[in-house]
């Protein structure tokens, strides 16, 4: 079995374990390359269907291309799309310049997700995070229990032995990370092989492209002439820059990602 097929097979195993375990399962979709690849694998796991809701945590600050991509694929893949926004915070003027970027991420992403889970009653969420994205994400488990107040206690995670994923009874909700073992290059090679739809923001225009996409005010494009997936792969195969270098929140202060994640950030 070739490498990418093995990666996919292991991810599908995790997806199917989650689907078996939880009757109220949903998936987070940011329309980025990772969660779109995850969505692709979900369709493969269930033979063309996506048998649970797909949640978009909408900060309202996303790029217009993200919304267009979302609406196109939601129709094409027949998704049960749920858009979750922290309307109270948005009405109060929350934004990346209101207090600081940490407060903004926490209000418009983490708290929007909290509200969505409470309202829709989900037990578990599938997310497209990967270990090689960030040193703190590298410490994640495939099945990660979260407490009632949403916190991730990274110092006392339950053991996870082989693929006998723990079923911790007292967790308020679980996060499941089927792509944990894949690298950024794995994802792009998978996208190329499978023909997974690609958000146009990743492709260079006028010498610039986004390597990691999120909210427009907090993402910086990189200098690039990669206008196709092949060219993106060639660029990454030669690059020495970390993937999230263009993300504002990672740079602002030491351990920001850890603080965000321990409060329930994705």
């Amino acid at each position: 079995m070739d490498y990418l097929s093995r990666m996919e097979s292991d991810s599908i195993y995790v997806i199917r374990e989650a689907f078996n375990r939880y009757s109220r399962l949903a998936m987070l979709w940011s329309m980025g390359k990772d969660s779109t690849a995850l969505l692709w694998m979900v369709r493969r796991a269930f033979f063309g269907r996506v048998p649970f809701p797909v949640i978009h945590i909408d900060t309202s600050y996303k790029f217009p291309e993200i919304y267009a991509f979302r609406d196109r694929l939601a129709k094409e893949f027949d998704l049960d799309l749920r858009v979750a926004r922290n309307e109270d915070a948005l009405a109060g003027g929350m934004g990346p310049t209101k207090i600081d970027k940490f407060a903004c991420c926490n209000a418009l992403k983490t708290n929007a997700l909290k509200q969505a889970i409470a309202k829709m009653g989900f037990e578990a969420l599938l997310l497209g995070i990967r270990r090689d994205e960030h040193g703190v994400r590298a410490k994640e488990r495939y099945f990660s229990p979260r407490s009632q107040d949403f916190t991730w206690n990274v110092g006392s995670q339950p053991p996870e032995l082989w693929d006998l994923y723990a079923s911790v009874d007292e967790a308020a909700h679980d996060r499941i990370h089927p792509l944990l073992h894949m690298t950024e290059l794995d994802i792009w090679r998978y996208v190329r092989r499978e023909g997974v739809p690609v958000n146009p923001l990743y492709l260079a225009k006028e010498g610039k492209r986004y390597r990691s996409i999120g909210c427009a005010p907090c993402c910086m494009p990189i200098a690039s002439n990669a206008t196709t997936v092949d060219e993106i792969i060639a660029e990454l195969e030669a690059s020495h820059e970390p993937e999230r270098a263009g993300r504002a929140q990672d740079k602002e202060a030491a351990f920001t990602m850890q603080k965000l994640r321990s409060l329930g950030y994705m």
């Binding site: 490498y3 090689d132 590298a138 410490k139 110092g155 690298t183």
Partner: peptide
């Protein structure tokens, strides 16, 4: 510190949880 990226790990100079880091050489992963 390449792998000990938690605040507690750096303050206490110890690894608390397991981590994975990935390399791709011309010959293997």
């Amino acid at each position: 510190y390449v792998v000990d990226q938690l605040q507690e790990e750096r303050e206490r100079e110890m690894t608390i949880d397991t981590t994975q880091t990935f390399l791709e050489t011309p010959a293997c992963r």
